[in-house]
């Protein structure tokens, strides 16, 4: 069973992720500047990625887990057994890895669209554009 301190740390981390999610959503919905909205979107994607990694973690009971890399050669049955019983889940890490790079490409595209928006309207403040 997980001891009390580990449980406390887990709750603090999960709570901080939820608070960050709320802050990012507020930034996307309520702030007027498009650049500030883009910053909020990066915070939102960071939070989602961190949640995925957290779900794949193996919470420590007495000993810390290992990263999903085999470090012993030759690979015998005993090595494989210790590896599968101590390594963390590699699947969320693989999904997050591609999501980060694709997220950067999409962020770059949004940045180009914001620059084009500024060329057309002369401002990045959505309230000012609406009043025109």
């Amino acid at each position: 069973m997980v001891n009390e301190y580990a449980l406390f740390a887990a709750y603090v981390v999960v709570l901080s992720l939820y608070v960050n999610l709320g802050i990012a959503l507020y930034g996307i919905f309520a702030r007027p500047s498009l650049v500030k909205k883009l910053i909020a979107i990066t915070i939102l994607s960071d939070t989602a990625n961190a949640f995925a990694i957290l779900v794949g973690y193996r919470w420590p009971i007495g000993k810390l887990p290992k990263p999903p890399v085999i470090t012993e050669l030759p690979v015998t049955r005993k090595v494989l057994e210790t590896y599968t019983s101590t390594a963390v889940d590699p699947l969320p890490q693989a999904l997050v890895l591609t999501a980060v790079v694709i997220g950067l490409a999409v962020t770059l595209f949004i940045a180009f669209i914001i620059i084009q928006y500024y060329r057309l309207y002369g401002t990045v403040n959505i309230h000012k554009v609406r009043r025109r």
Binding site: I53, K66, P67, P68, Q93, L97, V100, V101
Partner: peptide, 9 residues
């Protein structure tokens, strides 16, 4: 959280 790949990227 033991994700060295993600740190590198």
């Amino acid at each position: 959280l033991m994700a060295p790949d993600i740190v590198l990227v």
